[in-house]
Design a protein around this nucleic acid. Structure first.
Lengths: 334, 334
DNA sequence: TTGTACGCGTTATCAG
DNA sequence: CTGATAACGCGTACAA
């Protein structure tokens, strides 16, 4: 068994409260007894029981982080940045990977509450009802994607997906592409939704047709991007350019193209969000919009911490994004 | 404030213990009072305080997972698999990314103990002294890399790195490569160490020279692999084949080669451990040894759980690895 | 079937 | 300067 304050107290013949005072540097204690306590603590290799302490003090040093898929390069970088910032502030993370499942997300959410977390940073899955079930105000910051249908106020940090998507689409058009399809995610995800809307808006603005058969629905997995594109190839239905709503589906799409000997960008263009892979074996980056992961993480952490100080104060932040001029489209005008 | 058992008890005019019994389905309670309690619990949106419960019951449902770098595809997959298995078993994870820092690892370790985790799964950084500082027996399973210099027994799961490295090297030689260099990690890491030893052993077995200038020391980061290879290129000192001890440095190496227009595998070969990137944009995999991530994760989880039941029972497991015939070396004999 | 009393490990208040 | 005592939220042996 682990040593407790009581063990130390008995060891040195003092009261538990005195031992506590020594170990917390609170209150006045004679130097000799102090030394005795410190020695005993070391001897018994005492470690405080944080759970007991936080139960007593009604505090918590744990933050829950819920993300849909940690193997997605965007989310894993988000996780790492959040972890680093929180560590500096003396908090640590209960890690929750939902595999894009709303049910699992909900279960994790309940669990985090039971575990008494000081706050939650969540990149919600589609149709996330996390927040709706809530009666009391829990310190919850949403990232990347907004909760599904709620009248309740909440904190949120992301980029302006609508504007970013329009800008990206315009760049593709400016490069001379006309026949563009989009692989989108679940439209109940606000980020996917806005990216699709931005795509359609931009086509309309350019007086280009925007029929429904240019929209393909993926599920945020590699396999889905792969299969959609493979089907396009088999049906001899490849467009000039493929716009995937996120990096994972773009990677899947790329793999399908490569498998069938379709060259990028020579034969077909490919763009997406967050296609920058700093670890990419060949240093290849997919042209598109890049979200400022570090800044998003920092903002999310700040929001959670601020919410702890002044609960019920919600904020909303849309950070500037960047256009990454990668190697997956070419200028067809030249 | 969150509702407690006491709140419910007052609400329905019962004792706290009766309420507890209802909510835990323990002991006999009249159906009407049971219903009253359930209603009140729902009305007050009661959630149990797990910390208090576990403090009382002297249990814990949390496992600490310490890894050196979550952006490494090997570790992130390990993390995800561990999370999934633990979730099934009713545990969750406190996430600890040490950035390859021993100091940080140690701090995390202390913290996990203070947080009362039921066990720890750790892929230790080089010269990890985690374990040595320990007087009592903590439920700690090592993965991938063994603790540095200790007489104490411990649980461990990995592959046979020595044998795997010899096999990989032999394959490279069999493919006709003669001038091979190795990018290794810190030799106090047992995995790096064994991979290097395997490399050297195999060279010797083939009566090939194995001078020190064939060994380059990286630090497990992308940048290090990149810089080492870039320097080789600038010094016109490229070998026939580069053997990187892990995937991240291999990716760095690949990027450097690509940047300078060196073709793989036409101009130079490249092999490593865990070079399989299921998400790789172009579906390209680096030839080499692949560790069975899922099996390692499962074994680690099993060990932690078993250690909870029968403490002090250590086990050691080396799982079968695979050779991945990727696209980064060619047969020079043909 | 229900309530009382106690303790998990800590901190804080109040006496002395 | 030090030591009882209570309380955080919960579960359980014991008593009724």
């Amino acid at each position: 068994m682990r040593a407790t304050l009581k063990d130390i107290a008995e060891e040195v013949g003092l009261s538990v409260s005195s031992v506590s005072r020594v170990l917390n540097n609170t209150g006045r204690i004679s130097t000799e007894k102090r030394k005795a306590v410190m020695d005993a603590a070391k001897r018994l290799s005492y470690t405080p029981n944080v759970n007991a302490r936080e139960l007593k003090k009604q505090t918590s040093s744990t933050i829950g982080v819920i993300i849909p898929d940690v193997t997605n390069t965007f989310f894993v970088r988000l996780l790492k940045c959040i972890d680093h910032r929180l560590w500096e502030e003396g908090y640590n993370i209960i890690f929750c990977d939902t595999d894009e499942s709303v049910e699992r997300e909900m279960e994790y959410y309940q669990l985090l509450k039971e575990k008494n977390v000081a706050g939650i940073i969540v990149s919600p899955a589609s149709r996330s009802m996390i927040y709706e079930s809530e009666t009391q105000n829990i310190n919850c910051v949403f990232v990347d994607n907004e909760p599904y249908m709620t009248e309740k106020p909440y904190s949120f940090v992301s980029i302006n997906n609508l504007q970013a998507s329009m800008e990206l689409t315009q760049r593709v058009i400016d490069a001379g592409y006309r026949d563009i399809i989009m692989i989108t995610g679940d439209l109940d995800e606000t980020s996917s939704n806005q990216r699709l809307t931005g795509f359609q808006n931009c086509l309309r603005d350019n007086h280009m047709e925007c029929s429904q058969d240019k929209i393909y629905f993926g599920d945020c997995h590699y396999k889905s991007g792969f299969e959609i594109v493979e089907r396009l190839i088999e049906n001899h239905n490849l467009p000039e350019c493929i716009y995937a709503h996120n990096n994972v589906e773009a990677f899947g799409a790329y793999a399908a193209l490569r498998k069938h000997g379709v060259r990028v960008p020579e034969d077909v263009g490919l763009v997406c969000f967050d296609g920058e892979d700093p670890m990419s074996p060949q240093g290849l980056s997919i042209t598109g919009i890049v979200q400022p992961v570090e800044e998003i993480a920092e903002a999310a952490v700040d929001m959670v911490l601020n919410n702890m100080k002044t609960p019920g104060k919600y904020s909303r932040k849309l950070l500037p994004y960047q256009f990454l001029d990668g190697q997956t489209i070419r200028n067809k005008n030249e």
